[in-house]
């Protein structure tokens, strides 16, 4: 299933947030969205996930999602959004319960995603007992449980420290190598964008418009070994958004 974003615009009252956004998310690719703070990245992602309606333009699914997919568009949130009153296992079961899969099938899925995210031994733990990185792993396991066609990630690593971020990035790459999911990955961290993105969409400061679309052809698995080339991409992206970021920084919040 591909996603097609066509000429999306949006305003909150007098505040125009997005303007004329259009791009595609091809199946099996990771599309990163970068841009200065407040330019509407999270808003755009919520629209792609169907949590909010754009004022103009449309977001289209091209082709049917795989039949096995329980929730084709699945979010991974910056603050994990785990239910603190449910164990690791309970948090995963939460998103399966409404589908009435039967006890055996549910158990198979839960055990499967826990194994794939190396969480099997933490099955009974409470979220508060886990470190930030482990909590985000639980959220990733929960997302995998519904076999998404597209993962929508809003700064999934921003709440984590640098080392944990590095570990989780490697996990995500390994996961992508195995599952070949599509993803829209919002970040303001350019290093993440060049490590994970097949395509990087650079937005201008508010109202967010597309500044440039940068394709990075290097296979994800090879990227840690070719840092010098990535650096070049990263500097180019930085050159693109530097001035915008500076200007956005000086804007008063709330207009």
């Amino acid at each position: 299933m591909d996603l097609k974003i066509r000429d999306v615009g949006h305003a909150y009252g007098p505040l125009t947030v997005l303007d004329g956004i259009g791009f595609e998310v091809p199946a099996g690719r990771i599309v990163c969205i970068v841009g200065p703070s407040g330019c509407g990245k999270s808003t755009l992602l919520r629209m792609i996930g169907g949590l909010e309606r754009p004022d103009s333009g449309e977001i289209l699914q091209v082709g049917a999602p795989p039949a096995a997919s329980l929730n084709p568009l699945t979010f991974i949130f910056q603050d994990f959004a785990l239910l603190p009153w449910r164990s690791v296992e309970g948090n995963i079961r939460l998103v399966l319960e409404d589908h009435r899969l039967g006890a055996a099938e549910t158990e198979r899925i839960v055990a499967g995603v826990l194994a794939r995210t190396n969480l099997t031994e933490f099955r009974k733990a409470w979220p508060r007992q886990l470190s930030g990185g482990m909590r985000q792993r639980v959220a990733i396991a929960r997302a995998l449980a519904v076999s998404p066609a597209v993962m929508l990630m809003d700064e999934p690593l921003s709440a984590l420290d640098a080392q944990t971020r590095e570990l989780l990035m490697a996990d995500l790459v390994a996961l992508w190598e195995r599952e070949r999911f599509s993803a829209v990955y919002v970040t303001h961290n350019l290093a993440e964008a060049v490590r994970l993105g097949h395509r990087v969409i650079v937005l201008s400061r508010r109202p967010g418009r597309i500044r440039e679309i940068v394709d990075i052809d290097m296979p994800l698995g090879e990227r840690t070994g070719r840092m010098a080339e990535l650096e070049a991409h990263q500097s180019r992206l930085w050159a693109l958004i530097r001035d915008e970021a500076e200007a956005a920084e000086k804007e008063l919040v709330g207009g």
């Binding site: 949590l51 929730n71 568009l73 699945t74 979010f75 949130f77 959004a81 939460l94 409404d98």
Partner: peptide, 9 residues
């Protein structure tokens, strides 16, 4: 929001 995004009733 999370609940809605996973299509919970």
């Amino acid at each position: 929001r999370m609940g809605q995004s996973f299509g919970l009733s």
